[in-house]
């Protein structure tokens, strides 16, 4: 129950943050103006719109997730609100889960707004470039929704890891940097495998392979090809991907709890 109280409060706090509002506005601007970029690829206008919009949603979603989740605890530590909160009858895990819940609500709201604009743009584009070979808008909408759900799964993992790092930090800088690093490397995990095989030394190969094994593979959550080809089939299965994301998020929260449990505040 206390987690919900903390979560709702964290959500109310996050949606007022100027940084997060700026990210959302930027994302909306990029999505909204994506139609103007179609001049760069005549004949592939819808593909272009889908590509730009999905990349923007993933990128700005990542920024919102790492800034949102990574700043919650350092900010409350900095302004000392955390002392009053932790003096109340509540376990620290409750506090952490509450903060995580608040971050998810913020991410959901932002992704939701971006997804709605994305669908509106796609709808307008589908009316503008009527192509008999293209699937109907309902099919596009279905794949788009699936793509958005997977972006959210990715953010579940990223925000949990950013929250874990934030328990060690006195400012949001470290969790944000680590979060962005995990996002970039997480999207390049498949390259890491190749890199480990062609590493100049055995030692480097082992190190890179450990990264490959430990880091979440975010390319699983990126449905670019399916979206472009209106293919609703998700190779790994949505439930499996949810379980994958859930396990990584749970791991992140476990690390956060172990670091935060007896931390001097």
């Amino acid at each position: 129950m206390n987690s919900i109280v903390i979560g709702l409060n964290a959500y109310r706090e996050s949606i007022r943050k100027k940084t997060l509002i700026a990210f959302l506005l930027f994302a909306m601007l990029v999505i909204g103006t994506s139609t103007f970029l179609t001049v760069l690829s005549p004949g592939e206008e819808i593909k272009m719109v889908k590509d730009v919009c999905l990349s923007s949603i993933s990128f700005f979603g990542m920024l919102i997730a790492v800034f949102g989740a990574g700043a919650l605890i350092p900010q409350e530590t900095d302004n000392r609100t955390i002392h009053t909160i932790l003096s109340k009858p509540m376990r620290r895990i409750t506090y952490l889960l509450g903060k995580y819940l608040g971050a998810q609500l913020t991410i959901l709201l932002n992704l939701g707004l971006m997804a709605v604009l994305f669908l509106v743009i796609l709808y307008l584009q589908s009316r503008r470039y009527v192509d008999e070979s293209q699937a109907p808008f309902s099919a596009t909408a279905l794949v788009t929704m699936k793509a958005m759900v997977l972006v959210f799964f990715e953010m579940l993992v990223l925000s949990a890891l950013a929250l874990a790092v934030s328990t060690l930090s006195t400012s949001a800088t470290l969790p944000v940097i680590v979060g962005i690093f995990i996002y970039i490397v997480g999207h390049s995990v498949n390259y890491l495998k190749n890199l480990s095989e062609h590493a100049p030394s055995e030692f480097m190969s082992i190190i890179i392979r450990q990264f490959y094994l430990i880091l979440p593979n975010f390319s699983n959550f990126y449905l670019r090809n399916q979206l472009i080809h209106n293919d609703p089939y998700v190779p790994q299965g949505i439930l499996k991907l949810f379980a994958y994301a859930f396990l990584y998020a749970a791991f992140g929260l476990l690390i956060a709890y172990l670091l935060f449990r007896k931390k001097d505040m």
């Binding site: 109310r12 000392r80 609100t81 002392h83 009053t84 003096s87 509540m90 376990r91 449990r261």
Partner: peptide
Amino acid sequence: PETADSRLKASIGYLPEGPYFHEFL
């Protein structure tokens, strides 16, 4: 364990020095 701490905290009221609250409330 934290459980005993949590239960006992219900009987404590704490006023920190220079209390700070969420400004949006």
